[in-house]
């Protein structure tokens, strides 16, 4: 059984205990984890270990076969999964995308901020991925779940993302650049195969 005892002190926003989940049959678990405000927790494991399914189970999109998920009352969840929808030929701008989730544009990296007025289908894969991440990361939420956030990002993008994640979890904790997030102090749960990135940003990891 994969387990995470948490940081002990802060009451969890989200907790799973002995969770076994999947679709037609269980593909992950049993796993336990706790996520408190201000924490960044990583879920790591090989391809097919069920990392994305675990995120889906936490948001009710996958079936829970055993165990339980507890959420703080009134919990607001933001979630970004791997597959972005088709955007070719759709006249939708970056600014409109952020407005949909309620994410502020302030704090975007300098290589993306000037392109907010452009259509999504005119952005590069990396810019688009970062914009989707930003829209979910900075949406008003208590818990943010991100699935493979470093996909399609170049080293600059990964570095900027790492800083943004820390600021989102612990705003005002002395990060280098201005944050800009409207809502403060979220718990972040990340799924990634990028071990170096996870080591750099996560407070602790759960291995599946």
């Amino acid at each position: 059984m994969s387990g995470d005892s948490g940081n002990g002190g802060e009451p969890p926003l989200l907790a799973a205990a002995g969770l076994s989940a999947g679709y037609a049959k269980p593909v992950v678990g049993p796993v336990s984890l706790r996520l408190a405000r201000g924490e960044i927790v990583g879920i790591v494991g090989p391809n097919g270990a069920g990392k994305s399914t675990l995120l889906a189970a936490l948001t009710g999109a996958a079936r829970i076969f055993s165990g339980r998920v507890d959420k703080a009352p009134g919990l607001r969840v933001s979630l970004q999964q791997q597959q972005a929808p088709a955007i070719d030929g759709i006249p939708f701008s970056g600014a409109e995308l952020l407005a949909l989730t309620g994410a502020p544009a302030a704090g975007l990296p300098p290589w993306l901020a000037p392109r907010l007025g452009e259509r999504l289908d005119r952005l590069s894969g990396g810019q688009l991925q970062f914009l989707y991440l930003w829209a979910c990361l900075q949406a008003p939420a208590d818990v943010v779940l991100l699935d493979e956030p470093t996909n399609n990002l170049d080293p600059d993008g990964v570095a900027f993302l790492a800083g943004a994640l820390r600021r989102r979890a612990r705003p005002g904790a002395g990060e280098e650049e201005g944050g800009g997030n409207a809502c403060a102090g979220a718990g972040l749960l990340l799924v990634s195969h990028d071990a170096r990135f996870m080591d750099a940003v996560c407070d602790r990891t759960v291995t599946l």
């Binding site: 948001t59 009710g60 607001r76 933001s78 979630l79 970004q80 929808p85 989707y132 979910c136 779940l145």
Partner: peptide
């Protein structure tokens, strides 16, 4: 644009 976020809400 955000089917997962939509369901999560």
């Amino acid at each position: 644009f955000f089917p997962d976020l939509f369901r999560a809400r």
